[in-house]
């Protein structure tokens, strides 16, 4: 069943997103005329290789969810390229899109709102198998639901229960089992552990990394919580107001963040080391509106290192060795390699 799904050329990433742009119209007046746009996602590139985790991080409203949903065309983007398993999803007709989407599944933050409360767990998990014709008959699908439940460390006999009978962590496991039921190669996990207590979060993170190892799954891991990222992700894209402002391996990003925004985000994470107290509030104020992003560098209104140039000129993503940063300071960046 799954043999046909790999159409990715050797060396080609599983997912390659380029120049993705999704704007929401702002309507006003009796005639609901479009008076402007929320530029939720405004030229985003993301690359995910088979079997690896890329994290998409940033503050609330920066466009993470919109990016995740747009690349699966759950929202129609206005432009861009989304190469997944060798095809541009944005160019596919609806019928083919449906099939292409089988191997790219989404898992949401609040499983309660995405699990139909009137269905039993068995039917929730089997829904995708039914619609893609996976499994010979009902009995075989039920068998597979039992396997999947055990796979996510629940019990096979949980399948006859309803979602409300489960805790938040268990519901998230059900959501993961449902996504796995159609044998995906990519999971877009949108704040999948954000609502959970740390103890339960650790359980689900461990489960995710075990599944990744066993099934060679790729994850696009969307979160506002950088501390989770360090553990799970190989590469990280940091978003600010619809754009990627820094992209690097997780290791380098935490060791040596280049963009002032990334530095601020990292220094705002409270530590549990009793000798380290007193957070560095490195930038004041709130995130500006993405309907009306600041001129020049979108971060300039909050940047502690702002220069005159930043207010008027828009920085591009500057290529450093093996990483990128959208900041003029990176031009003669610490790596000394500027190809941008």
């Amino acid at each position: 069943m799954s043999g046909d799904s790999s159409q990715t050329a050797p060396g080609e990433p599983l997912l390659r997103v380029e120049g993705l742009r999704t704007w929401f119209p702002i309507k006003s007046g009796v005639f609901q005329r479009t008076v402007g746009h929320v530029r939720a996602v405004d030229g985003v590139d993301i690359t995910v290789h088979a079997g690896e985790t890329v994290a998409l991080v940033g503050e609330s409203g920066c466009g993470k969810t919109t990016a995740g949903r747009s690349l699966l065309r759950l929202i129609e983007p206005r432009e861009g390229v989304v190469f997944f398993e060798g095809r541009d999803l944005l160019k596919l007709p609806k019928k083919e899109l449906r099939d292409a989407r089988r191997t790219a599944q989404m898992v949401f933050q609040d499983p309660m709102s995405s699990l139909n409360p009137r269905l039993r767990v068995r039917d929730i998990i089997a829904e995708g198998m039914d619609s893609f014709g996976i499994g010979r008959d009902k009995a075989e699908r039920t068998e597979r639901v039992a396997e999947l439940l055990e796979r996510v460390q629940l019990k096979a006999d949980h399948m006859s229960r309803y979602p409300h009978e489960f805790s938040g962590g268990q519901r998230q496991r059900i959501g993961i089992a449902r996504a796995l039921s159609v044998e995906p190669r990519l999971l877009v996990l949108d704040e999948a552990v954000s609502a959970l207590d740390v103890s339960i979060q650790a359980q689900v993170l461990n489960l995710l990394s075990e599944l990744q190892r066993d099934l060679a799954l790729a994850y696009l891991f969307i979160t506002h919580d950088l501390s989770v990222v360090r553990y799970l992700a190989k590469r990280v894209c940091v978003m600010y107001l619809g754009q990627v402002v820094e992209e690097a391996s997780a290791e380098e990003l935490f060791r040596d963040p280049q963009h002032p925004y990334t530095r601020g985000l990292l220094s705002a994470i409270p530590s549990i080391d009793p000798d380290r107290r007193g957070l560095d509030v490195s930038f004041e104020g709130d995130v500006p509106s993405s309907a009306n992003p600041p001129s020049g560098c979108r971060f300039h209104t909050r940047c502690p290192q702002v220069m005159d140039r930043c207010r008027v000129e828009e920085p591009q993503l500057i290529q450093l060795s093996g990483r990128q940063s959208r900041c003029f300071l990176s031009e003669e960046g610490s790596c000394g390699v500027s190809l941008g």
Binding site: S167, Q170, V198, S199, I200, V228, Y231, L232
Partner: peptide, 23 residues
């Protein structure tokens, strides 16, 4: 101890995080 250890910031990439079993 379980609460402190399950903080993901403390985990080393690749190694399983310490968890508190159950709920």
């Amino acid at each position: 101890r379980g609460l402190l250890r399950s903080m993901p910031g403390l985990g080393r990439p690749g190694e399983p995080l310490a968890e508190i079993s159950g709920m």
